[in-house]
Design a binder for these strands. Sequence first.
DNA 1: CCTCTCTTTATGTGTAGACAATAACCGATA
DNA 2: TATCGGTTATTGTCTACACATAAAGAGAGG
Lengths: 253, 253
Amino acid sequence: MPAKPARKKAEPTLALDGNGPIYKQIERAVRGEILSGRWPPGHRIPPEHTLLQWFSTTRATVSKALTKMTEAGLLERRRKQGTIVAQSTESHAVIGFLDIRKEIEAKGREYSYRVLRSAKIVAGPKTAAWPEVPAGTPILHLQAVHSGFGKPEVLEERFINLEAAPDAVHADFEAETPNIWLLARLPCTRLRHSIKAEIATAEQAQQLQIPANGPLLVSRRRTWADALPVTCVKLVYPGERNEFVGEFNPLES
Amino acid sequence: MPAKPARKKAEPTLALDGNGPIYKQIERAVRGEILSGRWPPGHRIPPEHTLLQWFSTTRATVSKALTKMTEAGLLERRRKQGTIVAQSTESHAVIGFLDIRKEIEAKGREYSYRVLRSAKIVAGPKTAAWPEVPAGTPILHLQAVHSGFGKPEVLEERFINLEAAPDAVHADFEAETPNIWLLARLPCTRLRHSIKAEIATAEQAQQLQIPANGPLLVSRRRTWADALPVTCVKLVYPGERNEFVGEFNPLES
DNA sequence: CCTCTCTTTATGTGTAGACAATAACCGATA
DNA sequence: TATCGGTTATTGTCTACACATAAAGAGAGG
């Protein structure tokens, strides 16, 4: 005798849209709840067991969708506790740091790289920006300009740890930029970078062919191969002409 | 009659290290080959079928490891064609863009947020930095200062689309910064930001209490909720005192 | 009241196998 | 030779199930 089903939960039981793989449909459905605010930050979403019934699929598929969203920072999952909507939707952003050659060529300009100075030194006061190398370490000190159509675009000042890359003294960096040369030889297992703004010195302004005291965007990067410091590079961009742009789309991937 | 086995491949058949989940061990093993240069960019790695034999596991597990690395940009996979090591080992980096309040409080300073100006305007020449809103859209225009111990740290100029967030006119942004306020109400589905260097105007220098013509780091962000532009914000940091730092460890996750 | 243990819930990881989709490859044919 | 078509290798997605692991909660014993 079928008595009144006595609404068990009255939850709307999300629906799939039939587009593409099931795990992506689940992702869209859940994301829709979050983005619409129906599932606010901190909300505990139904457990996998419930979702697999709503969507008539298996745990592996539901889990794949939720795990992906967790990696994207949209959800937080804990055993026993369940899955909750993450608190901070915005946290960090990705910025493109392409190969400078590609950057310049992408603007349709002919690329050239010219080494202004190349000297073998030892770590000391000159490498103050690179505190990780012990004083006395042999270092290759490079100063160079990246240009497009002969017009200087970026200044580069680089230190290369010759204990990590002894061959660097013989390399032809006008044929292959140090960045590329190093990457091809030594794995980069750690990278640290920073960005700041500075005012152009007279020398920099002249080298970049910009007015004196103009703004500069300075990017400094240090890389390691395992525990061994490999290189420290300072890239100087004219502030007026350059902008680092990043785009982040929480909806995808 | 067992003839000489005639070395089939002589491939070293990578080994697992026994630490943690199998798929992570596979990840480390493969990453090791890539970072060491033994598998250079463009190299075709053994198909899943081979790897699952090397590692005595199943396709699902191998696939999980490789798919994860693909999402991280280390590999490229195509049906039938196989899996190859991605060309650009270095491509982009993550930069922390935390809540300014947290940034300042992390330095141990007492945070305060003061609204300098708040005006209801319509989109037009004043919102040139925000081309996505059609002219005539009602906009809330805010100017504010983030301070630590009373000392100005960051200038903020913000536009809020009142069609997206009509309540913003009544919000008390000194109690809750616009960033937090908006995030709690509207989902951010797309975010676009850029960084550039500028020279402080007299007014900015005075507001930030820095010398005139000093360097500034300018970050501009625009966000969308689905297709609807929500806010456009320009954050101005004194270049001397601030640095955006990011750390990236290709070995993890 | 506190602490310990047991149970329960939910996610984390793994196995085994299936079919689908894609694109390279190879052979047959015009 | 060039093109068409079938075969095959490889990844993409899914089902179904199993056991491991973390943590909350309940109950027993002090």
